[in-house]
C-alpha cells in the first residue's frame, strides 16, 4: 500500500514537472529530467539481467549505444533518401525506429550473450566489458557514420502529429515509453519465466536438477535486457539529436550498474530511482566543483561498504 502511494506521488510529480520547471524559470530542468528517465530506463533494462538474473554485465553501454546508432543511421538515410547498404530504406518515424533499434540491439545481445553466458562470475564481467569495447572500436572505425565525432541527426523523429521539437512534449513521450517499459518488466518478471530466472539466480544447479534449461532462460533475459538498453539509447539519440560515441564508453556501463545498485537491484522501479539519485547527485556536485568525480568516487566506495539494499527498499522489509 505504502509503495502504491509513493509511486502515485512520484508519477504525479513527474506529470507536473514541465509546468513546475517552467514556473521556476528553469526550462533546462525539463531536459535534465528527460535524461534521467532515459537512463532510468536503461538501468532498469540492465536490472533484468543484473538484479533478477544475477548476471553482472559490464557491457550494457554497447546495447545502449547500438540502439542510439541504429536510430541515428536510420534517420540519416531517411533524410538523405539513400537506402542503407543499398537495400533498406531509412525512416524518420519514432515508432518504426524504436522497433529497429530494439531489434538490432536484441540481435547484438543474442550473439554476445550466447558467447558470454558460457562463463560466469568474474569472467562474465570481464567478457561483457571486452565485447562492449570491441563494439566501441567498431563504431570508432566506422568513418561513414561519424567515427570519433559521433553522428548528428538533423531533427528528432516524428511521432503522429506531435511537435517533437518541444522539450515538454518529448518529456511526456519519454515518460510514456518508460511507463510502458516498466509495465512490460513487471509482466515478464511476474510470469513463469520471471520465477525461473529468480530460481536460477538463487541456485542454478538446483534449477538444472529440476529440468530447467538454465542457459536458455538466462540467454532470453540477457536479450530482453539488451533490447531495453537499445530502446533507451534510441530515446537518448533523439533527445540531443546527436549520437555520441561516449554513449558506448565503458564508464556508461559502470554508471548503469551504480544506478541499479543505488536504487536497489531486484526491484522494478529501483533502478529508475537510482538514475534520478545518481544524476541528481552529479548535477549538484557539478555546481560545486568541476572535479566532482573526486567526491563521487569515495562516496561510491562508502556506499558499497556501508549499506546494501538500495533506495527502493528503504522503509520496506528486506528480502
Amino acid at each position: 500500500m505504502r509503495k502504491l502511494i509513493a509511486s502515485a506521488i512520484g508519477l504525479a510529480l513527474l506529470l507536473a514537472w514541465p509546468f513546475i520547471a517552467e514556473k521556476m524559470g528553469a526550462p533546462a530542468l525539463i531536459s535534465l529530467f528527460t535524461r534521467m528517465m532515459i537512463l532510468g530506463l536503461a538501468a532498469s533494462a540492465l536490472n533484468i539481467a543484473l538484479g533478477f538474473g544475477g548476471l553482472v554485465s559490464l557491457g550494457h553501454a554497447a546495447f545502449y549505444g547500438i540502439g542510439a546508432y541504429a536510430i541515428g543511421i536510420s534517420t540519416t538515410h531517411a533524410i538523405s533518401g539513400l537506402p542503407f547498404l543499398g537495400l533498406l530504406p531509412g525512416s524518420d518515424q519514432l515508432l518504426v525506429n524504436v522497433l529497429v533499434a530494439m531489434l538490432v540491439s536484441g540481435c547484438a545481445a543474442a550473439i554476445i550473450g550466447a558467447l558470454a553466458l558460457r562463463t560466469s562470475g568474474i569472467q562474465f564481467i570481464m567478457i561483457t566489458l571486452a565485447f562492449a569495447q570491441m563494439i566501441f572500436f567498431l563504431f570508432l572505425a566506422l568513418k561513414a557514420y561519424g567515427g570519433d565525432d559521433g553522428l548528428t541527426m538533423r531533427r528528432r523523429n516524428g511521432l503522429f502529429d506531435l511537435n517533437m521539437r518541444d522539450d515538454a512534449t518529448f518529456f511526456y513521450v519519454t515518460l510514456g515509453f518508460l511507463l510502458v517499459w516498466l509495465a512490460i518488466c513487471a509482466r515478464v518478471l511476474h510470469s513463469r519465466f520471471g520465477l525461473l530466472l529468480g530460481g536460477i539466480r538463487q541456485n542454478e544447479r538446483r534449477m538444472q536438477a529440476v529440468g530447467v534449461n538454465t542457459f536458455r532462460v538466462k540467454w532470453i533475459a540477457f536479450i530482453i535486457s539488451g533490447m531495453g538498453a537499445g530502446l533507451a539509447g534510441a530515446l537518448m539519440a533523439n533527445l540531443g539529436r546527436f549520437v555520441s560515441l561516449d554513449l558506448m564508453h565503458w564508464t556508461t556501463s559502470g554508471e548503469l550498474l551504480i544506478m541499479c545498485v543505488l536504487g536497489g537491484s531486484g526491484t522494478i522501479v529501483g533502478p529508475v530511482l537510482g538514475a534520478f539519485a545518481l544524476m541528481g547527485l552529479e548535477a549538484t556536485l557539478n555546481t560545486w566543483t568541476e572535479h566532482w568525480q573526486a567526491i563521487l568516487g569515495p562516496l561510491l566506495v562508502l556506499m558499497v561498504l556501508a549499506f546494501k539494499g538500495g533506495l527502493a527498499r528503504i522503509g520496506g522489509r528486506k528480502s
Binding site: L50, V56, L58, G121, I122, I125, G254, L257, I258, V261, S265, H291, W292, Q293, A294, L296, G297, P298, L299, L300, V301, M303, V304, L305, K308
Partner: peptide, 26 residues
C-alpha cells in the same frame, strides 16, 4: 570486499577509478 559479491567489488573499484583519475587531473 573479500566476502562481498563481485558486483560490490566492481562498484567500489569503479569508484576508486573516478577518484584516482580526478585526483591526477587536480
Amino acid at each position: 570486499l573479500y566476502a562481498r559479491d563481485h558486483l560490490d567489488q566492481v562498484l567500489a573499484t569503479f569508484g576508486l577509478i573516478l577518484f584516482f583519475n580526478q585526483t591526477i587531473i587536480l
